[in-house]
Design a protein around this nucleic acid. Structure first.
Length: 399
DNA sequence: TCTGGGGTCCTAGGACCC
DNA sequence: TCTGGGGTCCTAGGACCC
């Protein structure tokens, strides 16, 4: 009988680290990734490169990633670049280059699946792995029952470094929830192993918000209730949590605090929606800036349509999203009688959605979304000829 | 000079059906 | 004058994640 071992592997300061491979002269310096293309390094007559710094940044960008040297100034992901500039004016600012990060993402994932083929993609820079059946995972080494799994974790890290030149942090535990927590415990370049018996010592002292799924809102409510650490959350009565957070979330909080999680590693998921949105350089008024807004709106529809075609989907619901200058968000969605992939159709229905929304306030963002995706040609059972549907369903409800 | 862009999942109410 | 218990689909908003 084999013990379940799940790894969470998280690349260290991923975007920034990829940029440092390209510009090794920046190693050790505070570097921030974010903003638009305007901050491309410029070649100088003497052959060197001139980098932008945060000092003169003006705009609405946010920090995507910061090097550890920049983090020492208090800069972190999702912080506005203006605020980051106030904290670290001399930090180098580099534009995001998603194509390059995707290339490195493919490289590290390809290296990992050579060793551990059961991989769940959690974005460009992190993955879960089910190591249970990987040869050697269950072996003892020199009398150490965890020797095999520890060696496997090190092999994964070595493979990532060999394939990319980059470091990562790995947590290995019996489930995804704990592994995610553990990959963060020894960053950068960490390898953390935890058995269930280690939960009180290693997990319970951590702040509750470190749990994946406890965000700013839930964390603030817990604080207000006097619950700060995961241990305090674990000590709370489930009934009490249910009272304050609802049956679903309340019970989940209790399970999570005790490190219980039986979610499988899911190797593939069909996408459910596809969207494009953009924040304007300055807030636009629905009437005064009607033409500019219309052009942007049409372009977003065309981009969504081309994304659908390129990825091989069509969708049945068309939605819009507006963010007003006061950051309030409204959404509208309408479901069509048939699936579509067509830019003009998307534009038409998105336009109708837009007409049902208050337009007397300046806008900061607009977005277009398509939901209810399917692969073209895959007729749902209900739309097929009745006899065929009956055969497929064997016997439909008797009503 | 606050606060990007792309997603998932949950809740809750109403329409509609049997 | 009013009476039920499902089920599904649709829509809007919100929390959360990377």
């Amino acid at each position: 009988m084999s013990r379940r071992w799940i790894a969470h592997l998280d690349m260290d300061a991923f975007y920034a680290s990829v940029e440092l491979l390209r510009y090794p002269q920046l190693t050790g310096q505070p570097v921030v990734i974010g903003g638009g293309r305007r901050h491309q390094p410029e070649p100088q007559p003497d052959g060197s490169l001139s980098f932008s710094t945060l000092r003169h940044y003006a705009g609405r960008g946010v920090v995507t990633t910061a090097t550890y040297a920049a983090r020492a100034f208090g800069v972190h992901s999702a912080m506005g670049l203006m605020k980051a500039a106030a904290l670290a004016p001399d930090a180098v600012l580099l534009p995001t280059d998603f194509d390059e990060y995707r290339r490195y993402s493919r490289l590290f994932k390809a290296a990992v699946v050579e060793i551990a083929p059961v991989m769940e993609d959690r974005g460009i820079d992190e993955i879960y792995l089910d190591l249970t059946e990987v040869p050697g995972a269950q072996d003892a080494v020199d009398g150490d029952p965890l020797g095999g799994i520890r060696a496997l974790g090190q092999r994964l890290k070595d493979a990532v470094h060999h394939a990319t030149g980059l470091s990562c942090s790995v947590g290995i535990t019996p489930n995804k929830l704990l592994s995610k927590l553990c990959s963060d415990l020894d960053k950068p370049d960490g390898l953390t192993l935890l058995e269930l018996s280690g939960i009180p010592e290693r997990i319970w002292p951590l702040p509750a918000k470190r749990i994946n799924g406890i965000g700013p809102k839930a964390s603030a409510r817990l604080e207000a209730l006097g619950v700060h650490t995961i241990g305090e959350l674990a000590a709370a009565e489930p009934e009490w949590l249910v009272q304050h957070f609802g049956a679903n979330y309340g019970l989940w909080l209790h399970e999570a605090a005790h490190g219980r999680d039986d979610r499988p590693v899911v190797t593939y998921r069909e996408p459910k929606s596809l969207s494009r949105e953009t924040t304007f350089e300055r807030d636009l008024h629905p009437r005064q800036d009607r033409d500019a807004l219309g052009a942007i709106f049409t372009r977003l529809c065309e981009q969504v349509a081309s994304d659908l075609e390129r990825k091989g989907f069509e969708g049945r619901s068309i939605g819009v999203k507006l963010r007003y200058d006061d950051f309030k968000i409204v959404t509208r969605v309408v479901t069509l009688p048939a699936h579509t992939q067509d830019a003009a159709t998307i534009r038409q229905w998105a336009g109708r959605c837009l007409k049902t929304v208050p337009l007397d306030q300046r806008l900061r963002l607009i977005g277009v979304k398509v939901e209810g995706l399917r692969r073209p040609g895959s007729e749902p059972v209900a739309a097929q000829e009745p006899a065929a549907a009956w055969r497929l369903g064997e016997s439909l409800p008797l009503f």
